[in-house]
Design a binder for these strands. Sequence first.
DNA 1: AGCTAATCGAGACGGTACGTCGTGTCTTTTC
DNA 2: GAAAAGACACGACGTACCGTCTCGATTAGCT
Lengths: 202, 202, 202, 202
Amino acid sequence: MRGRPRDPDLPARVLDAALAEYARSGWAGFTMHAVAGRAGVGKSSMYLRWPTKEQLLVDAIDAYTRPLVVDHDTGSLRGDVLALASSLLAHFLDPMGWVTVRIAVDAAVESVDLGGFHERIVTKHNDAAQRIVDRAIGRGELPAGVDGRPLLEGLFGGVLLHTLALPPSEHAAARTDLAAHVTPLVDLLLRGVGPAATPAVG
Amino acid sequence: MRGRPRDPDLPARVLDAALAEYARSGWAGFTMHAVAGRAGVGKSSMYLRWPTKEQLLVDAIDAYTRPLVVDHDTGSLRGDVLALASSLLAHFLDPMGWVTVRIAVDAAVESVDLGGFHERIVTKHNDAAQRIVDRAIGRGELPAGVDGRPLLEGLFGGVLLHTLALPPSEHAAARTDLAAHVTPLVDLLLRGVGPAATPAVG
Amino acid sequence: MRGRPRDPDLPARVLDAALAEYARSGWAGFTMHAVAGRAGVGKSSMYLRWPTKEQLLVDAIDAYTRPLVVDHDTGSLRGDVLALASSLLAHFLDPMGWVTVRIAVDAAVESVDLGGFHERIVTKHNDAAQRIVDRAIGRGELPAGVDGRPLLEGLFGGVLLHTLALPPSEHAAARTDLAAHVTPLVDLLLRGVGPAATPAVG
Amino acid sequence: MRGRPRDPDLPARVLDAALAEYARSGWAGFTMHAVAGRAGVGKSSMYLRWPTKEQLLVDAIDAYTRPLVVDHDTGSLRGDVLALASSLLAHFLDPMGWVTVRIAVDAAVESVDLGGFHERIVTKHNDAAQRIVDRAIGRGELPAGVDGRPLLEGLFGGVLLHTLALPPSEHAAARTDLAAHVTPLVDLLLRGVGPAATPAVG
DNA sequence: AGCTAATCGAGACGGTACGTCGTGTCTTTTC
DNA sequence: GAAAAGACACGACGTACCGTCTCGATTAGCT
């Protein structure tokens, strides 16, 4: 291989700049020119790696989201689910967190798969949820063979909708008491999963 | 009021054209010029009513979504919820249906209220859900004072996430058997709401 | 004739407003909307009288130019010509005076006759010049049958070009000493017309 | 200097296209879009070089006018002046020639200097005229120190006014006998400059 | 006095050009 | 041969103006 080697730092610089630009101005105003400028990079170098703007943003989101999935064993199903729900709520209350959803929705509307979004973003969360259910089965909290997907859908989607329906003026307050916002939904779902999983209905 | 009155048919023509253009080419290729041309209208007349492209699309979606909310009394809570969930699933499986969600997400990310999106789209669905719960209370299926919101969040969000997680290749199949896709989630949620609301766990 | 009679003041108001707008912003920025607004008149009332913007402006110029032609007998050909030349120079040093020329040039370029520009503006000045020559013939300063047109062309055009070549920074100074600017040209032309018409060449 | 260099052929292509478009449809219908299309050029590349439509046209005129100044030594002052006057008349009888004057008048009215009009168009003709006078002084046809400017003003302006006063219907005829139209003016002016410069008055 | 009809102001209408900006490609020099 | 810089062709944006049109409100002359 001859010639100048590819700059190994370049992708990281571009991805950071992409997130920063996206956070600053949303999809409108997310321009390749601005990203290139902020990263101190030529546009051609970006198009060499990411064929479209969307691909670039998906990569940036992926890099940002990677350490976000909560997969910590709290010792009980309710504890795990509450922790996951709180983490999701915190995620959605952060403007950056919405990007994941926005990209997913865009992918669904355009009915094109933006650079393997499903495998890389959706599956990642699905797996985390199934691990929580499997741990609960191991503890005897749930019968074997329970399908974790409806629970995940209700949980993930419920938190999403809750945030969506929350007026922006209450976002700050919600960030200080995450559990209060998710507990009703969590308990509703856990009562549905199995009688042992939740305190008795008052 | 003096001067020539505004053409009362014009908004309808423009809204129809906007939906048609959006359906044909998605957000990319959704041009004010094209909408104006299809509607047989000058761009100025459009900007006189809708300050931005987004506002126009929100209005078009609203007009399209209006007859979509299912609010039919099937005689039982489970029947009502199943009908609502099926309707939502059908809505999300239609590419046009996603636009509602996309706009909502955009509104959340930009943290600006795109033309009263909350009042006009979100509230509309919230109210429909609460009416279902109130009917169930009237029938004695649920105790008085039950809050419908967690149910709605789980239901709406769950169906949303279900569709989002569904690979595009399975969309056609899902459209032919809506109930099969939503029943697990519906039953999970109804078990959580109250013991009388659902058949015993098999 | 039935129906409401046309407002007799309206043309005057519109013509004044047209000149004011033209003086303020030139041809660019000379909008029918602005003229109508300044005159307190509806656009339809203007289009009822003037089919095009150009026609309106020609009429406005004509009304403004009418009292401008100097046709005063000073007792000698040189005096008459100097007076005419000074008046022309003053006219061209006034920004409004240029409008006449601008319209004439526009008419020439478009090679359409903007509402009888020739008969109404050009002829008017031609006639004034010929009267000066005729008076000089009557006094015996010029032989009978002399054609006044080359004199007029050289005079009118010469003053025009002199102003055109004058840097804007010297316009104010020129206005205070009109004769000094036109004397060289006037004497050049009068020496050409006939020996008796001018003092001996130094 | 880094980055892709500007295409050196582009200005020429655009200037040619601008003239062609102007000749085809006049100022109305002189569209940046149309010029760009004819030149096979993006609008942005045009705005990169010419901030306004007017500037572009001035440049195009300048490029067109450059080879127009006649500065050929015919051996006599009368021959030189007749040649210059005929050339000017031909210039003004060509619709394109008027553009020079139009731009000059616009520059005077707006009292802004449209892209250095004075230095580039006016001075160019002034210098040519002074060279003619200097050659005549060299031949002994004129006394030393004669100022060429009044002659130029009378000549240039006289031809201009002559064309302006000529009804469009006679333009074609004038083009076939340029000398007949300019001779009266030329002789008038030359008699004024000096006795040796012209044949005796008939 | 009531009717009829032309004109008035206002301003919305379908078009079209403007000048700006973003895209994704291409062409240089520099490393 | 990859990097940055930035010019390139293209096309949509939202604004402004055109000349036409449709209103309700005058303001006469004619019955």
